[in-house]
Design a protein around this nucleic acid. Structure first.
Lengths: 343, 343
DNA sequence: CGCTACCGCTGGCACGTTTTAATAAACGCC
DNA sequence: GGCGTTTATTAAAACGTGCCAGCGGTAGCG
């Protein structure tokens, strides 16, 4: 009997009437409790509980001019890398009373644009995005609306914008360097679309490592570009490499999903890893360590990426004047396992 | 010059003025285009593009009484099972112009309740939820607000509610039956909290299979209950089992994350799978096939679960009178791989 | 020819909240 | 006790949209 389940929603006005105060006072109880006398406040809070009142977020947003939601646009929610990021985002947002609206672009510009439109309609307070390509125009459209944007896993090219990223060139160099150290002379780089910055940077890093070893990147590095970056694409890449004859000594995959698929493909073709061909992935997702041949990889501080990006974003939203834009760049870390064990 | 990036937002009123029509007509162009003469419509659409107008979702929600967002509450976004579900949800929602608000409960009642509150504040049109326990009271609070709820991976106990689930008792029976067929006599069931229905049902199924084989579930099935259902917990379970001495013949894990962690733990302890102990997981996540010893598992139509749940939800929202509530129950499927290969 | 139905559009009200200026009450001070 | 100052509360005005009654005009109908 205490919960007034009327079926319809109860507004701030009804709470006010029931408590014998004006709607404005109820609003104050909700938003600036210290401005309300203790006695009045507790009476109002009591009524709120009795009536089961829940603030109407839309009305609040409309009047206040901004919402308590943030948009999160990722490239592939099926990739544990992004799941980890999302977990970090969700944790921070939830702690601070923000809701997260999820958008999955699948690397598709059209889908990404549609998601951005939804975010704009919802008047999200801010946007976290791993852009699917380099085109900054789309983001300007968002920023022009006064929505803060923090780039995730992508360095900002402008000083008036926050970003959190991991150095992919270093990562690529580390990965390829590790393969070369293992004795490989001919490498393959299996990657998603090279329009994706991460892929391109990791390739550049690999080329640097090859050049530093005194080899010619043009001949010592075979690039296999796949349309997607999942396990299926990795398996197809394996078939392609095997069918092409002359295998490279070692393969560097642009992410672990590709690497795991590739590994499966190689094993099915009767090849031994790392004996016939060494293999290294990228991201060090949880499953890398548990795979058929445990997978060497490049570890990134994924969850932290999501947390820090969200903290930066909400700081920018809530303290616009004191906020200092930051472009944070983490360094990745080599995790060597069986798939690159020499011998 | 075509995009009026004024910095501030442009309202339906300004569009109307610019196009020489009334705000009501612009509203009609947006919501009921067929009611507007083609010529007028195209003129308005032109102005909308020129001014970069984007509908204010909150104002729309406030006036219309319902939003274009749905809430998605899952137990563990880090589990590929839920990621697959989320992908299905996102795809359908996106197609129909709905935004998805993500909530991750981590199996924590408090977090789940906080998320539900956020959903209520946002006045989500509907809610998709994999409840973290059996308590239906929390959902009644939501439903009393007139928000449709569809249960995901959880059968509804009442006829006035939609649900999409997979038969976990059958799944448990299939898994345990498969292990018994392989010659095992003493089984272990490694599970998350038995307050989770899925875990309980899978255990019941296993017990049924054991009883059907003429054995006594009480002595032939050792239950190892872990507080979490991730790989780390699985690894700890392996340590626990190994330390406890006398290993079972075969182990059934309540999900693949537990199984992969367990597998790693067993291998590290020097045990051979399936020679020393057979192992089967649940969910058949992508990584199950690529693991050190490829993992037998029980496959569920995960992505489909998300798609259908969302279709049901949005049908219930958009066609409330013609909508027929459905409790859909899929049957899981055994995928036998190396980890249960007999011999 | 009158009646109705429809067409394309208008104008204004309502949605639930926040916020500001104004009011009322309480208080300390000379 | 009048006066200025602080504190607690109120009333009213937005915020941007959706909805509906209703405008004059026209076509179809009996």
């Amino acid at each position: 009997m205490t919960t007034g389940s009327t079926g319809s929603t109860v507004s701030i006005k009804e709470v006010a009437a029931q408590a014998g105060v004006s709607p404005g006072t109820v609003s104050n109880v909700l938003n600036r409790p210290h401005k309300v006398a203790a006695e009045t406040r507790s009476r109002v809070e009591q009524v709120i509980r009795e009536l089961g009142f829940v603030r109407h977020g839309s009305a609040s947003t409309l009047r206040a001019g901004h919402s308590r939601t943030i948009g999160l646009s990722v490239i592939d929610i099926g990739n544990p890398f992004f799941t980890d990021v999302a977990a970090g985002v969700e944790d921070v947002a939830s702690e601070l009373g923000y809701a997260v609206i999820l958008g999955n672009s699948s690397g598709d510009r059209v889908k990404e644009e549609r998601n951005l439109r939804v975010f704009a309609e919802q008047r999200v307070r801010g946007l976290l995005i791993t852009p699917s390509d380099e085109d900054p125009a789309r983001l300007d459209v968002i920023r022009d609306r006064g929505i803060s944007v923090v780039l995730v896993d992508h360095p900002a090219h402008r000083p008036d914008q926050c970003s959190v990223a991991v150095n992919d060139i270093t990562g690529g160099r580390t990965a390829a360097g590790h393969l070369l150290d293992g004795g490989a002379a001919r490498l393959a780089f299996v990657t998603g679309p090279l329009t994706i910055r991460q892929c391109l940077d990791r390739m550049s890093g690999a080329e640097q490592a090859i050049a530093a070893a005194g080899l010619d990147p043009a001949s010592a590095l075979e690039v296999v570009e796949m349309p997607a970056m999942n396990a299926r694409a990795g398996q197809r890449a394996a078939e392609k490499l095997v069918a092409g004859g002359r295998l490279p000594d070692a393969i560097f995959c642009a992410n672990d999903l590709l690497a795991l698929g590739l590994l499966r493909g190689l094993l099915q073709a009767g090849l031994r890893v790392p004996h016939d061909v060494a293999l290294i992935g990228y991201d060090d997702i949880d499953f890398a360590a548990a795979s058929a041949v445990s997978l060497s990889s490049i570890r990134q501080p994924t969850y932290k990426l999501g947390r820090i990006a969200t903290e930066l974003l909400l700081d920018e939203c809530d303290n616009p004047e004191s906020h200092a834009h930051q472009q944070i760049m983490f360094q990745p870390e080599l995790v060597a396992r069986e798939s690159t064990r020499r011998g």
